[in-house]
Design a protein around this nucleic acid. Sequence first.
DNA 1: CAAAGTTTGGCAACCGCTTGCAGTCGATTT
DNA 2: AAATCGACTGCAAGCGGTTGCCAAACTTTG
Lengths: 335, 335
Amino acid sequence: MEPTDRKRPTIYDVAREAGVATSTVSRALTNPGRVNARTRDRVVEVAQQLGYRTNPLAQALPSGRTRTVALLVSDVTNPHFFGIIRGAEQQTRAAGCTLILADTEESPDLEAAHIERLSGSVDGFVIAASRMSDQQIGELTDRHRLTLISRQVTGVPSAIVDHEDGTRQIIEHLASLGHRSVVYAAGPRRSWLAAKRWHAIRAVTRKLGLSATRLGPFPPAVRGGAAAADAALGQGATAVIAHNDLLAIGMLRRFTDREVHVPRDISVVGYDDIFGADFCSPPLTTLAGQFDEAGRLAIDLLLGTRDGTRPPQADNQVVLPSHLVVRGSTGRAPS
Amino acid sequence: MEPTDRKRPTIYDVAREAGVATSTVSRALTNPGRVNARTRDRVVEVAQQLGYRTNPLAQALPSGRTRTVALLVSDVTNPHFFGIIRGAEQQTRAAGCTLILADTEESPDLEAAHIERLSGSVDGFVIAASRMSDQQIGELTDRHRLTLISRQVTGVPSAIVDHEDGTRQIIEHLASLGHRSVVYAAGPRRSWLAAKRWHAIRAVTRKLGLSATRLGPFPPAVRGGAAAADAALGQGATAVIAHNDLLAIGMLRRFTDREVHVPRDISVVGYDDIFGADFCSPPLTTLAGQFDEAGRLAIDLLLGTRDGTRPPQADNQVVLPSHLVVRGSTGRAPS
DNA sequence: CAAAGTTTGGCAACCGCTTGCAGTCGATTT
DNA sequence: AAATCGACTGCAAGCGGTTGCCAAACTTTG
């Protein structure tokens, strides 16, 4: 006894029962203005009573609209993406659509493969922290609806959390604590964010007369922290900005193991304010942003369902504000 | 200039180009044995060179197989589900299928609604930590393919992490540290796991001659920790077992705020060994299980793609082993 | 009251792929 | 050499909706 769906009623059943043509049923259900109110009511009632549910596949085939969108993230287990996933999920649901989740494992090829595979079964893609090149993304945009999170490419809609102003906040915070130089523990070579963050760090430090050094790249995960921490100590750093909170937390652990005291001996700052940043030891000073909002926005941009309350940005590239959350991992520079 | 997919080649294009009927193309591509090797090679070659990609929707419509499965989790932002999501994602991909992710927000109604909505666009459902009643689940099984994670219902395939043996490990650990009584900070009333865990705690404590008290229910999230911690202190507990790590971490924070020292004054144990359990303060003693494996297994069970290496369990209810990870949050009972 | 203009609703052709059925043709059996 | 048999492959009918086009019915207008 295979547990298969029983025969579900189709528009044919509804049409027969209501004494109209299938086209009328179809219109009554999807294009209410096109059919007489009385007929429509009857159709709707019959449909209701038969327990009719429109078959999304059959609907998608001729219309081409699948009411489904795909979200590609570079690592589903990275807490950074939780907010994004949740926001995207909520907004997708709110739009009456369905979310497909795919893990790209930090690989541009896998990103492309997923898009290729899903093309045709989704109306569009949201890519978070894409590892593809600007050119690749540009080419994809010609053939698919596409929006980006934490990445900007000319001509492609996107939602990012402000990294320039955020980095300024970080550096000023460190400068005010007396730090004269900072070390950046960089993320993956492919990472657009890593490049941007380093760029911003350089710009701000220069303006404030601090010096900046880049180390890495390191894998943006807790396991990358040990090497990053050791490298930072090797530099004699007093303050280190990690590419993200995972890396920062990994560094904190390494410092603890090596009996380097944070923040007395060295200050640590992360990006993203992920789950755990507030209860690691010491709690992490980090740049927070509304990533769930970024997820929601990316879906809105993709589906064209943005509410009018938000002023339209040029080129549909939305920049969300960020703010520094100061916790225990930063302190006065050692003298 | 709408960025829409260009006209993709169809089997008609391939058929014309290869000089065969569409049915032959279809068979050559999906049912290789049914067609002559030479013809097949030519079809495949033409398809390849035209860049033909089968349209999954059109394929699913007549066949009924969507090659898509849905994963329902009660809270996408709960790190506990990361492993499950990742495992399910991997295995789905390995089977050449696509994963749809839905958040049920701890609501049985939303679970049912999602299933209703997705029915027809997926081949089956995996429900993690379902909040539905046994009866509801039983009824759904009649109409849909369905497997469960962290939940057992007679006649429904499932993958769970051993809670009975795991709970025994927890209690024995506490007993060996001199604790004579334990408090269980319970999860949601609807949670099957919460009931099972309490049941196991009772059974084991009784056998070892300890006493056990249940408090709660508490929301299984960090924010539930404060109330749980206060309640535990009110009981004069020396050891508390939290429903899950989130709750445990929330309790740890509350104890810190109230200057109750863990583990000197009170020991805390969690379940799941989530991200963060190893770097909270103090690091959390918790019951670990292979949840990614549970995710993979649930997909295998659903799709019938289980490799033969694992001996078949009765009723397809797989129980994965669990093991206690002892960290800093448990210690000798105060005298 | 006829002519012209609106609605309504039915017909039928797809959307791209699967599959039961039947016809073709060379090979094997008797 | 005729009959039988398989292996292939093509035909065509769906799968469950959508939608352009057209005719019928109903309104409005002169």
